[in-house]
Nucleic acid binder design. Structure first.
Length: 259
DNA sequence: ATGGTCGGCAACCGA
Protein backbone atom coordinates (compact mmCIF):
# COMPACT_ATOMS: atom_id res chain seq x y z
CA UNK A 1 0.00 0.00 0.00
CA UNK A 2 1.22 3.48 -0.84
CA UNK A 3 0.05 6.73 -2.31
CA UNK A 4 0.58 7.28 -6.01
CA UNK A 5 -0.53 10.39 -7.87
CA UNK A 6 -0.61 11.04 -11.58
CA UNK A 7 -1.44 14.40 -13.12
CA UNK A 8 -1.98 15.62 -16.67
CA UNK A 9 -1.56 19.17 -17.94
CA UNK A 10 -1.59 20.80 -21.34
CA UNK A 11 1.11 23.41 -20.70
CA UNK A 12 0.76 25.36 -23.96
CA UNK A 13 4.56 25.80 -24.04
CA UNK A 14 6.58 24.18 -21.25
CA UNK A 15 9.08 27.02 -21.39
CA UNK A 16 6.44 29.74 -20.96
CA UNK A 17 4.89 27.69 -18.14
CA UNK A 18 8.05 26.37 -16.48
CA UNK A 19 7.95 28.43 -13.27
CA UNK A 20 4.28 27.57 -12.71
CA UNK A 21 4.84 23.88 -13.46
CA UNK A 22 7.85 23.66 -11.15
CA UNK A 23 5.93 25.37 -8.39
CA UNK A 24 3.00 23.02 -8.88
CA UNK A 25 5.26 19.96 -8.79
CA UNK A 26 7.00 21.20 -5.67
CA UNK A 27 3.67 21.78 -3.93
CA UNK A 28 1.79 18.69 -5.12
CA UNK A 29 4.67 16.23 -5.27
CA UNK A 30 3.11 14.00 -7.97
CA UNK A 31 4.65 10.66 -8.83
CA UNK A 32 4.03 11.24 -12.53
CA UNK A 33 3.12 14.35 -14.51
CA UNK A 34 2.01 14.00 -18.14
CA UNK A 35 2.49 17.15 -20.20
CA UNK A 36 1.15 18.10 -23.63
CA UNK A 37 1.80 20.95 -26.04
CA UNK A 38 5.33 21.42 -24.75
CA UNK A 39 6.13 23.30 -27.98
CA UNK A 40 9.86 22.70 -27.72
CA UNK A 41 12.45 20.74 -29.61
CA UNK A 42 14.11 17.96 -27.62
CA UNK A 43 17.46 19.76 -27.48
CA UNK A 44 15.79 22.69 -25.69
CA UNK A 45 13.54 20.78 -23.26
CA UNK A 46 14.18 22.11 -19.72
CA UNK A 47 15.01 18.68 -18.33
CA UNK A 48 17.59 19.85 -15.78
CA UNK A 49 14.94 21.93 -13.98
CA UNK A 50 13.01 18.72 -13.31
CA UNK A 51 16.15 16.74 -12.50
CA UNK A 52 17.10 19.22 -9.81
CA UNK A 53 13.79 18.39 -8.14
CA UNK A 54 14.46 14.67 -8.24
CA UNK A 55 12.42 13.92 -11.35
CA UNK A 56 13.28 12.49 -14.74
CA UNK A 57 11.72 13.94 -17.86
CA UNK A 58 10.96 11.78 -20.90
CA UNK A 59 9.91 13.81 -23.89
CA UNK A 60 9.35 14.07 -27.60
CA UNK A 61 8.91 17.45 -29.14
CA UNK A 62 9.11 19.35 -32.37
CA UNK A 63 9.56 22.95 -33.33
CA UNK A 64 6.61 25.24 -32.46
CA UNK A 65 3.87 22.63 -32.22
CA UNK A 66 2.75 19.61 -30.23
CA UNK A 67 5.23 17.91 -27.92
CA UNK A 68 4.55 15.51 -25.03
CA UNK A 69 6.49 14.68 -21.89
CA UNK A 70 6.29 12.34 -18.92
CA UNK A 71 7.89 13.68 -15.76
CA UNK A 72 8.43 10.96 -13.18
CA UNK A 73 10.15 10.51 -9.86
CA UNK A 74 10.38 6.76 -10.39
CA UNK A 75 12.47 4.89 -12.96
CA UNK A 76 10.81 4.46 -16.33
CA UNK A 77 11.34 1.67 -18.83
CA UNK A 78 10.05 0.66 -22.23
CA UNK A 79 9.83 4.24 -23.46
CA UNK A 80 8.01 4.61 -26.78
CA UNK A 81 7.42 7.77 -28.74
CA UNK A 82 5.06 8.03 -31.68
CA UNK A 83 1.73 6.32 -32.18
CA UNK A 84 2.81 5.35 -35.66
CA UNK A 85 6.08 3.67 -36.61
CA UNK A 86 8.31 6.22 -38.23
CA UNK A 87 6.17 9.12 -37.05
CA UNK A 88 7.90 9.82 -33.75
CA UNK A 89 8.47 13.40 -34.85
CA UNK A 90 4.74 14.06 -34.70
CA UNK A 91 5.23 14.32 -30.93
CA UNK A 92 1.71 13.48 -29.83
CA UNK A 93 2.34 10.15 -28.10
CA UNK A 94 4.73 8.95 -25.41
CA UNK A 95 4.47 5.86 -23.25
CA UNK A 96 6.59 4.26 -20.56
CA UNK A 97 6.25 1.73 -17.77
CA UNK A 98 6.56 3.25 -14.29
CA UNK A 99 6.27 1.18 -11.12
CA UNK A 100 5.17 -1.69 -13.38
CA UNK A 101 2.24 0.36 -14.66
CA UNK A 102 2.15 1.27 -18.36
CA UNK A 103 1.52 5.00 -18.69
CA UNK A 104 0.34 6.36 -22.06
CA UNK A 105 0.35 10.14 -22.55
CA UNK A 106 -1.28 11.66 -25.62
CA UNK A 107 -2.02 14.97 -27.28
CA UNK A 108 -4.88 14.17 -29.65
CA UNK A 109 -5.10 16.33 -32.80
CA UNK A 110 -7.41 19.29 -32.29
CA UNK A 111 -9.28 18.71 -35.55
CA UNK A 112 -10.01 22.30 -36.65
CA UNK A 113 -13.62 21.73 -37.87
CA UNK A 114 -15.87 18.86 -38.99
CA UNK A 115 -15.55 18.18 -42.70
CA UNK A 116 -11.89 19.13 -42.91
CA UNK A 117 -8.96 16.80 -43.59
CA UNK A 118 -7.66 17.59 -40.13
CA UNK A 119 -10.94 16.48 -38.56
CA UNK A 120 -10.73 13.19 -40.47
CA UNK A 121 -7.16 12.81 -39.24
CA UNK A 122 -8.30 13.39 -35.66
CA UNK A 123 -10.91 10.62 -35.97
CA UNK A 124 -8.35 8.25 -37.48
CA UNK A 125 -5.83 9.11 -34.77
CA UNK A 126 -8.37 8.39 -32.02
CA UNK A 127 -9.26 5.05 -33.63
CA UNK A 128 -5.60 4.13 -34.10
CA UNK A 129 -4.79 4.97 -30.49
CA UNK A 130 -7.51 2.57 -29.33
CA UNK A 131 -6.16 -0.09 -31.72
CA UNK A 132 -2.71 0.50 -30.26
CA UNK A 133 -4.05 0.00 -26.73
CA UNK A 134 -5.86 -3.16 -27.81
CA UNK A 135 -2.73 -4.60 -29.38
CA UNK A 136 -0.36 -3.79 -26.54
CA UNK A 137 -2.48 -3.96 -23.40
CA UNK A 138 -5.24 -5.88 -21.71
CA UNK A 139 -8.08 -4.18 -19.85
CA UNK A 140 -7.73 -6.79 -17.09
CA UNK A 141 -4.24 -5.49 -16.24
CA UNK A 142 -3.19 -2.09 -14.89
CA UNK A 143 -2.95 0.69 -17.46
CA UNK A 144 -3.03 4.48 -17.28
CA UNK A 145 -3.96 6.60 -20.29
CA UNK A 146 -3.85 10.35 -19.79
CA UNK A 147 -3.79 13.50 -21.83
CA UNK A 148 -5.57 16.11 -23.86
CA UNK A 149 -8.12 14.29 -26.01
CA UNK A 150 -9.65 17.43 -27.48
CA UNK A 151 -13.07 15.79 -27.14
CA UNK A 152 -15.79 16.48 -24.57
CA UNK A 153 -17.67 13.22 -24.19
CA UNK A 154 -21.01 14.26 -22.72
CA UNK A 155 -23.25 17.33 -22.31
CA UNK A 156 -22.01 17.79 -18.74
CA UNK A 157 -18.50 18.20 -20.17
CA UNK A 158 -19.20 21.53 -21.90
CA UNK A 159 -20.72 24.85 -20.83
CA UNK A 160 -23.40 24.98 -23.54
CA UNK A 161 -24.11 21.57 -25.08
CA UNK A 162 -27.06 22.76 -27.18
CA UNK A 163 -25.03 25.43 -28.95
CA UNK A 164 -21.78 23.49 -29.16
CA UNK A 165 -23.22 20.18 -30.40
CA UNK A 166 -21.67 19.30 -33.75
CA UNK A 167 -18.67 21.59 -33.33
CA UNK A 168 -15.13 20.30 -33.23
CA UNK A 169 -14.48 18.86 -29.78
CA UNK A 170 -18.17 18.14 -29.18
CA UNK A 171 -19.08 16.20 -32.29
CA UNK A 172 -20.88 12.81 -32.28
CA UNK A 173 -18.23 11.20 -34.52
CA UNK A 174 -15.55 12.04 -31.95
CA UNK A 175 -17.73 10.99 -29.04
CA UNK A 176 -18.61 7.64 -30.61
CA UNK A 177 -14.93 6.74 -30.84
CA UNK A 178 -14.15 7.91 -27.33
CA UNK A 179 -17.09 5.86 -26.11
CA UNK A 180 -15.35 2.82 -27.62
CA UNK A 181 -12.48 3.43 -25.20
CA UNK A 182 -14.92 2.95 -22.33
CA UNK A 183 -16.41 -0.15 -23.98
CA UNK A 184 -12.91 -1.60 -24.27
CA UNK A 185 -12.46 -1.28 -20.53
CA UNK A 186 -11.08 2.12 -19.73
CA UNK A 187 -12.77 4.14 -16.99
CA UNK A 188 -12.92 7.94 -17.03
CA UNK A 189 -11.59 8.50 -13.53
CA UNK A 190 -12.92 12.02 -13.07
CA UNK A 191 -16.43 10.74 -13.66
CA UNK A 192 -15.98 7.81 -11.30
CA UNK A 193 -15.49 10.29 -8.50
CA UNK A 194 -17.21 13.46 -9.68
CA UNK A 195 -20.46 13.07 -11.68
CA UNK A 196 -21.57 16.70 -11.51
CA UNK A 197 -21.47 19.16 -14.39
CA UNK A 198 -19.50 22.37 -14.45
CA UNK A 199 -16.14 20.64 -14.09
CA UNK A 200 -13.85 21.85 -16.85
CA UNK A 201 -10.16 21.58 -17.72
CA UNK A 202 -9.99 23.99 -20.70
CA UNK A 203 -11.09 27.58 -21.33
CA UNK A 204 -10.61 29.10 -24.77
CA UNK A 205 -8.31 32.13 -24.62
CA UNK A 206 -10.48 33.76 -27.27
CA UNK A 207 -13.48 33.95 -24.96
CA UNK A 208 -12.90 36.85 -22.56
CA UNK A 209 -13.06 35.84 -18.88
CA UNK A 210 -14.08 32.32 -19.86
CA UNK A 211 -13.11 30.91 -16.46
CA UNK A 212 -15.09 33.50 -14.52
CA UNK A 213 -18.04 32.97 -16.87
CA UNK A 214 -17.76 29.19 -16.46
CA UNK A 215 -17.40 28.79 -20.23
CA UNK A 216 -15.18 25.73 -20.18
CA UNK A 217 -14.71 22.31 -21.66
CA UNK A 218 -13.63 19.07 -20.02
CA UNK A 219 -11.38 17.64 -22.70
CA UNK A 220 -8.51 16.29 -20.57
CA UNK A 221 -8.79 12.77 -19.20
CA UNK A 222 -7.18 10.21 -16.97
CA UNK A 223 -8.41 6.78 -17.98
CA UNK A 224 -7.52 3.54 -16.27
CA UNK A 225 -8.40 -0.14 -16.33
CA UNK A 226 -10.34 -2.08 -13.66
CA UNK A 227 -7.42 -3.11 -11.41
CA UNK A 228 -6.49 0.55 -10.93
CA UNK A 229 -10.07 1.80 -10.72
CA UNK A 230 -10.33 -0.19 -7.50
CA UNK A 231 -7.23 1.53 -6.19
CA UNK A 232 -8.31 5.02 -7.26
CA UNK A 233 -8.99 7.13 -4.18
CA UNK A 234 -9.69 10.59 -5.55
CA UNK A 235 -9.59 12.73 -8.68
CA UNK A 236 -9.67 16.50 -8.90
CA UNK A 237 -9.22 19.46 -11.21
CA UNK A 238 -6.74 21.95 -9.76
CA UNK A 239 -8.17 25.41 -10.41
CA UNK A 240 -5.60 27.08 -8.17
CA UNK A 241 -3.07 26.52 -10.92
CA UNK A 242 -5.19 28.88 -13.04
CA UNK A 243 -4.44 31.77 -10.72
CA UNK A 244 -0.87 31.91 -12.01
CA UNK A 245 0.15 35.14 -13.67
CA UNK A 246 0.20 33.59 -17.13
CA UNK A 247 -2.08 30.55 -16.96
CA UNK A 248 -2.31 27.96 -19.69
CA UNK A 249 -5.68 27.58 -21.37
CA UNK A 250 -5.88 24.18 -19.63
CA UNK A 251 -5.41 23.22 -16.01
CA UNK A 252 -4.14 20.23 -14.05
CA UNK A 253 -6.22 17.09 -13.69
CA UNK A 254 -4.97 14.84 -10.88
CA UNK A 255 -5.68 11.26 -9.83
CA UNK A 256 -4.63 9.71 -6.55
CA UNK A 257 -4.27 5.96 -6.00
CA UNK A 258 -3.50 3.70 -3.11
CA UNK A 259 -1.34 1.05 -4.74
C1' DA B 1 -17.19 51.37 -24.56
C1' DT B 2 -15.19 52.41 -31.14
C1' DG B 3 -11.68 47.27 -27.71
C1' DG B 4 -11.67 41.87 -27.11
C1' DT B 5 -6.07 35.58 -26.64
C1' DC B 6 -1.73 33.27 -26.50
C1' DG B 7 2.81 31.18 -27.88
C1' DG B 8 6.21 30.41 -31.16
C1' DC B 9 8.79 32.79 -33.93
C1' DA B 10 9.49 36.05 -37.21
C1' DA B 11 4.74 36.38 -40.96
C1' DC B 12 1.38 34.22 -39.65
C1' DC B 13 -0.24 29.41 -37.97
C1' DG B 14 -2.44 26.52 -34.66
C1' DA B 15 -5.36 26.17 -30.71
Amino acid sequence: MGKFTLATFNANSIRARLPAVLEWVKKQDPDVLCLQECKVQDKDFPSTAFESMGYTALYRGQKSYNGVAVVTRHPAEGIRTGLYEGMEEEARFISATIRKIPVVNVYVPQGVAPGTDKFAYKLRWLKDLLSHLGHHYNPKTPLLVAGDFNVALEPRDVYDPETLRGEVGFHPDEQTILQDYLSWGLVDLLRKHRPEGGLYTFWDYRIPNALKRKMGWRIDYIFTTAPLVQKSKNVWIDLEARTAEKPSDHTFLVAEFDL
